[in-house]
Design a binder for these strands. Structure first.
Lengths: 129, 129
DNA sequence: CCTTGTGTATTAGCGTACCAATACACGTGG
DNA sequence: CCACGTGTATTGGTACGCTAATACACAAGG
């Protein structure tokens, strides 16, 4: 469900937060849905439970998650359950900018980049299936 | 020349290193070319000079840069002056993977992503000109 | 009741990243 | 020669990110 890369430089708890935000904004995690338990996630990704808890706690402070004593973390009941396409595209923008910067510095033609991107998306689609 | 974002989570010196690697692998920085001075870069990006120096030092350890006492850092004379397209595409892969991951979690269609990418690349091209 | 499963607080420790300020060694040009 | 521009070493400090090991409060189910 999540992709955590400890060597990326980006703090793990931040990676997790961003991915939860995305899953909620796309509706893959709907209001009321339960999140993976802190210990499960920590075990699965070989990470300290407190690192996961930190992400959950911050997301609760943002109002995206709700806490129930003794039970799993839930997606909060929100006024905006699912963002429209343009809002989600806005969330994608940072990743796009980074890719464009890299492509420019590598002097790769737009067509080459587009083709590589299409390949990667097709492969991901296949792997998910 | 460089794009350093202190808030991205990725250490500044790592961002710089990666971008120097890309500019060399594309030939935009050729063997013998001088790099921006530590103090200039530090001033331009509001960063401590030692942070830039750290990046330069590590790149020298990698063999990408050469040091001349009292003079600016140079791009080393390398056996491989410029990488071919497939090698440069390989360097682009991490940025692509990250974009694909984000797109999946945002439930954005490949066509939407491709279109957003093309727009961003065209805009960058225009801004550069 | 008691076990198991939630999240969380606490304490301590460790390594990294960055900063400020200072000083040094070297090459170049006035 | 001297001033200026290279990179760099040093010292000291701050903040962050992550870990380990415990321990607690609560809910649900056997």
């Amino acid at each position: 469900m999540f992709t955590l890369n400890p060597a990326s430089g980006v703090p793990i708890y931040r990676q997790l937060m961003e991915q939860v935000r995305r899953l909620i904004s796309s509706g893959q995690l709907r209001p009321g849905a339960a999140l993976p338990s802190v210990r499960d996630l920590a075990l699965a990704h070989a990470v300290n439970p407190m690192t996961i808890s930190k992400a959950y706690g911050l997301l609760e402070a943002e109002g995206l998650l709700e806490r129930q004593r003794g039970k799993a973390m839930l997606v909060a009941a929100q006024p905006k359950p699912r963002e429209n396409r343009s809002e989600r595209l806005a969330r994608l923008q940072p990743a796009i900018e980074q890719l464009v910067t890299a492509a420019r510095q590598l002097e790769l033609a737009p067509d080459d980049v587009a083709q590589a991107l299409r390949r990667a998306m097709e492969k991901r689609e296949k792997d998910d299936a």
